[in-house]
Design a protein around this nucleic acid. Structure first.
Lengths: 243, 243
DNA sequence: TAGTGGTCTAGACCACCCT
DNA sequence: GGGTGGTCTAGACCACTAC
């Protein structure tokens, strides 16, 4: 992999190091080259390298020990299992070891509900694009997700095939928008007849419900999402740096 | 507030800026001074200041707009409501607007269960200190938490009064250990008779169950925790940076 | 004692937004 | 054009760990 200038160095180095960890160039538990050596090898300054390492450390992927070295965290086996930024359900399903698939149940325009309008900072009744999808792990439904986008943001006609896209790619393609941050509320949701219908089987245990709002760089809400998540089949795991 | 050298500049500046945001020196939605001005005012380099701002931006507390300025995120009203590092239930309860209290139900040594031993990397039957607590919001139980610490880590006799301490302070006081990162699994937990007993009232709706393991800098597990969390009274909210 | 990561600086140049 | 944040560098010194 060649370092190219136009893309920020930090991004390039970040993906490169992630690849090396994934591909076991740096195996779990092993020590990375020293910061000076790595910086020299990559032809970048130590300061730049350190911003990359700081991010990886914040995610728990590496552990840095002063006076000793930087190690690959062997307790974070799969670095994609984590819930966090730049994250989508399909990748999560796959890194849990399943084959992932998406079933688009609906993709249409309709008026926004009160709750949706409030979340999206639009007026109730304003048109939104509603995208209802079921995520399958090895053919079994594990997540039912509804995402609602203000129709005013949609630039062109929506190709139904793009219902397969992760939501952040969908936003990029149709709205030219980039997600800056997301706010997620987590609740526990009792089984209900409508969940049985959606999942196509009786749900006789509680599910997790994730309610998300995604914002862009200007702090405008882009998407309101609600996902019912079967944690018995798919682990929801957070890794949090401390301090 | 005076800048002192011994404590890392980054920490001092970080807490200072958080205070200013909390105290509305920089009100919600307002623009902060430019990086150059702020750095000059605080007598630090722009690079140092930028590492602080990067962290605040990653938490969603501020928004940085190239060519424009840095703004206080008005959508993250209470910057402590977030689930994340350096975080404890008492503060969470208080920032949700309740008066918080802790009831210590048990604080004793006992053999570790299979599951606890596996999580803590000790042998089943090895002694652990078990700390069972109920967190109250305005007198109402909202969280039931059990924390288990390998007895081998405990340096001295435990004062029952210290059952009130947040777990990271407890670790610091009795084990001389600092938490480096935490891994949390989130599940939904159906109501059950034992929950009714613990909470002292019928729980006829599902709760969230958080299973946490805390690690130190050497990647050794310090605490295994399991908390039943009433999300109907206390919101569990994540703020995630994207990208 | 040598080598590691941790902290911090001063300054350069760029991309972008506003007017 | 002038100011803002974004990127990146080169180098200094410190704190800590392993040997």
């Amino acid at each position: 992999m060649q370092i190219q200038r136009p893309r920020p160095l930090v991004d390039q180095v970040s993906t490169m190091l992630r690849q090396r960890i994934r591909n076991r160039v740096y195996p779990p538990g092993s020590r990375l080259p020293s910061e000076s050596d790595l910086a020299q090898e990559l032809g970048i300054s130590r300061a730049t390298l350190r911003t990359v390492l700081a991010k990886l450390a914040a995610e728990g992927v590496i552990l840095r020990k002063q006076g000793d070295g930087t190690y690959v965290n062997e307790r974070i086996r799969d670095i994609d299992t984590r819930y966090g930024g730049e994250w989508d359900f399909s990748r999560l399903i796959e890194s849990n070891g399943y084959r992932s698939a998406i079933e688009t149940r609906a993709l249409d325009r309709r008026p926004a509900s009160e709750r949706e309008a409030a979340a999206l900072a639009i007026a109730p009744g304003d048109a939104v694009l509603a995208l209802v999808r079921i995520f399958l792990a090895d053919g079994q439904p594990v997540i039912a997700a509804t995402n609602v986008i203000p129709a005013a943001l949609i630039g062109r006609e929506v190709d139904p095939a793009d219902g397969q896209l992760p939501i952040h790619q969908f936003l990029r393609a149709y709205c030219g928008e980039e997600i800056m941050y997301a706010v997620t509320d987590i609740e526990a949701q009792a089984g209900a007849p409508e969940l049985d219908r959606i999942f196509g089987r009786p749900i006789d245990y509680p599910l997790l419900r994730l309610t998300e709002i995604f914002y862009n760089r200007l702090n405008q809400p882009l998407v309101y999402g609600r996902s019912d998540y079967d944690h018995t089949r798919l682990r929801l795991r957070l890794v949090q740096p401390w301090g």
